[in-house]
Amino acid sequence: MYRPTQGTPDMSSIVLADDHPFIRSAVSQVLELAGHSIAACVANGDEALAAVAEHRPDIVILDVKMPGRDGIEVLSAMHADGDTTPVVLLTAGLTDEQLIEALRCNVRGIVFKDGAEDRLVECLEAVAAGRRFVDQELLNQALAESLKPPPADPLSCLAPREREIAGYVGKGLRNREIGDAMGITEGTVKVYLNSIYNKLYLRNRTALALIVMAP
């Protein structure tokens, strides 16, 4: 779990996840010039979770769109696991659903890639000082989305892979069988299920199966 480090707030240890090598290199250079330490640079969500577990960074920077598990899913998995390491999302844009999920999982910062150089450094300074760095425009977008009537489909808030897992649960498959069908480990299935339970406010797979099988 996250433990604040001693020292100046602008000297943070960072795990950076982005599937584009050029972006990883450019962002790393900017952050190192600003005095931050790059604990690890990785290319996808699973590598990001492994790097967070290994390095225990002060801050995690996640690209939203990555192959496999995306930045929102990594944030959700960390939140479900009780990991309070501050997360900053680096993105070209967010859907309403992604924004709501990010805020629900206590994202600490959101920075758009367009013009990110100065904004990212400013964001990290705010996050390291314990503040949230999210544009008011995005907060207004989230408020407008939260005031909409609930969707008819209770599974609409789930990410595509979470919906796939929910479907397998509805068919009665066990975690190992789901993992075999999707080409992922049984442990990864459990992480996804915890995220699903949190999003749908469920206690167990029986409740999930009932929702999936409901007409």
Score class of each variant (00 low, 15 high):
R3C: 09
G7C: 05
G7N: 07
P9H: 01
V15I: 03
R24C: 02
A26D: 04
A26H: 03
V27E: 01
Q29I: 14
L31C: 03
H36T: 06
H36S: 01
I38K: 08
I38T: 04
I38Q: 02
A40N: 11
C41Y: 08
A43V: 13
D46F: 15
A48N: 01
A53H: 05
V60E: 01
L62K: 04
D63N: 03
V64L: 01
G68S: 00
R69F: 11
G71S: 03
L75P: 05
S76A: 09
H79K: 03
D81K: 00
G82L: 02
D83F: 00
T85P: 04
L89H: 06
E101F: 11
E101P: 06
E101I: 13
G109V: 03
G109Y: 00
I110H: 02
D114P: 01
G115W: 05
V121G: 07
L124G: 07
E125C: 11
E125L: 15
E125F: 14
F133Y: 14
F133A: 12
F133K: 06
E137I: 14
L138N: 06
A144V: 11
E145R: 15
S146H: 14
P149R: 08
P151E: 04
P151G: 12
P154C: 09
S156N: 07
S156R: 13
A159R: 03
R163T: 04
R163S: 08
A166T: 08
Y168R: 11
G170F: 09
G170L: 10
R176S: 11
E186M: 15
G187K: 13
K190T: 15
Y197A: 12
N198E: 13
Y201Q: 13
R203N: 11
N204F: 02
T206N: 03
L208V: 07
V212M: 06
M213N: 08
